[in-house]
Structure formats: C-alpha cells, structure tokens
Design a protein around this nucleic acid. Structure first.
Lengths: 142, 142
DNA sequence: TATTGTTATACTCTATAACTATA
DNA sequence: TATAGTTATAGAGTATAACAATA
C-alpha cells in the first residue's frame, strides 16, 4: 500500500474508532457503565477476584486510575474490597451479588447500546469486527 | 451466537479498543497530535476548508468542543481561521503551509505510532482492520 | 426564528507525584 | 528495597448552558 493511501486508511480507521468511543460514552452517561467500568466487571466475572494492581496491568492503566474506577463501582454497590487473606497490602476486588446480577441481566437482555448495535450486524460483519479486535489488542500491547 | 458468548466477544472488543485509544493518547501526549486533532487535519487535507460546525458534525462532537480543538491547532500554527466570504457568521478553517507540510511529513515517514504499528501488520491483517473500520463507522452513526 | 461561533463551567478518564503500610 | 494501595493534583477531551452576531 502506498504511504499516502495507508495514511488515509489509518485516518479513517482512527476517526471511526473515535466516534465509536464517544458514542459508547454518550450511552453510558445516561445509565450504562463506562467502557472501563464494563471492562472491569467483565474481567471480574470471567476471571474471579483480582487486586487493583492486577486489574490495572490487565487494562493497561495506572493503579491509581484503576483505584478511581473501583471506587466508583464500589459506590454503586457492584464490587467490594476484601482484605487479601495472607498479604496485608493487597485488597481483593470481587463482584457483589448485585454486580453479578447486573452482569447476567446485561448479557441476557443485550442491554448496552453497543451489544444491541453489534447484534444487528450480520454474522460475517461480527466476525470481521471480533477478528479486528484481536489485531487491535496486539497493536495496543506493542 | 449465544448471548453470553456475544457479551464476551463484545467485552473483549471494547477492551481492546479502549487500550488502543489510551495507547494512541499516550503517544500523542509526547509529541504527536491527538486522535481528534489528526482527524481534523486529515479531513481538512482531503476535503479542503470547512467551518467549525461542518467539522463538528463530521466528527460527531459539539461545535463548542470542535472550537477547542481548532484553537489548539491554531496555536500550533497548523490551521487558520478566515472569515467566510459571504456569510458573516461563519469562519472557514484551513490548513496553513506548516499544517500541510506536517501532513506530508507524517505520511511520508509513517511518523505516528499507530501508522508504524499498522505498517508492521501483514496485508490480510491490515485489510481486516480497515474493513472493521468501515463497520465501526456504520455502528457509530446509528 | 435558526444558525454560527464564543465564553464559561463542569464532568469523565487518565496521568504524575508524594505518601503510608506491608512484604 | 520493592510492592500495594491511597490521596492530591492536573491534564485532555468532551459536554451543557448562556450569549452575541448574522442570516
């Protein structure tokens, strides 16, 4: 691909991603969880309790930032902090019953704007999207 | 796809996108332009001068927010405001010589972190990514 | 009356820096 | 000395609200 064409494709891609993020953020502002919050909820649901440092590493943000996200979720009653059984420095973050219920309700009802939108794509488009997701993850980790 | 599997795929995708955005933002913080700024520069280069309202509509943000972005680019000397010839309310935003030079330098040298990273993908991966970009754009517009 | 743009203010997400407590 | 977490502060990128100028 010529450098100029590549630049245009990258610009188009970047722009599309930016719009998606703003769109998700706008949906979240009204009632849903933000991208970061959903991401943490999903991870806790899939992989079980984790420390703030673990979660921060997994998401690629600083522990201080993750602390803020966790505090927000905690105030909503969706997660709780428990002291680590042997290491007095660590706090295990885990889903509350309310948090778990929200998770189930969300994927049962395809409740988020993004899930609704993706559900309406055809199978091939969904596959392209999710394969791109894998590529994006690798890019972001570089 | 089962609702639960879909939810997991969507969560993975969301998370990957979030990480990419943070990664790009971190690169931009040091020296490059932010995603919004690049997007505007690209659009002005491709489509020529435009008003703030036009640019805001195209990017899916509020005119006030676009005004901030334009002011930043203006302070960097990359764009300039010119009064619209017939409509006294409007300001045409256009690239300066410096802005145009930056554009050319950027795509000639694949200067941004994202362009570098995408260049290193193989052709098939690039295609998947860019096709996903189209799908993302349609999602975001809904 | 509708549109363009500006100014003022605030919110979300994340960062850096400085600190305490524990290992 | 290194790691986990907290608190304080700041920055980027947006939003809403209120306004002035022009159409």
């Amino acid at each position: 691909m010529l450098p100029e064409d590549l630049e245009i494709s990258v610009a188009d891609f970047t722009q599309a991603v930016g719009q998606l993020v703003r769109r998700v953020r706008a949906s979240a502002a009204s009632q849903e969880l933000s991208m970061s919050e959903s991401s943490v909820m999903s991870r806790l649901d899939k992989a079980g309790p984790a420390t703030i440092a673990d979660l921060a590493r997994a998401e690629g943000i600083k522990p201080q930032s993750m602390g803020t996200t966790i505090s927000t979720l905690e105030e909503m009653g969706l997660v709780e902090r428990r002291p680590h059984p042997t290491d007095g420095r660590q706090m295990n973050i885990e889903l509350t019953a309310k948090g778990l219920a929200l998770r189930k309700a969300t994927y049962a009802a395809k409740k988020t704007w993004l899930m609704q939108a993706i559900t309406q794509l055809d199978e091939a488009e969904q596959e392209t999207l999710f394969r791109a997701g894998e590529i994006i993850r690798r890019l972001a980790e570089k």
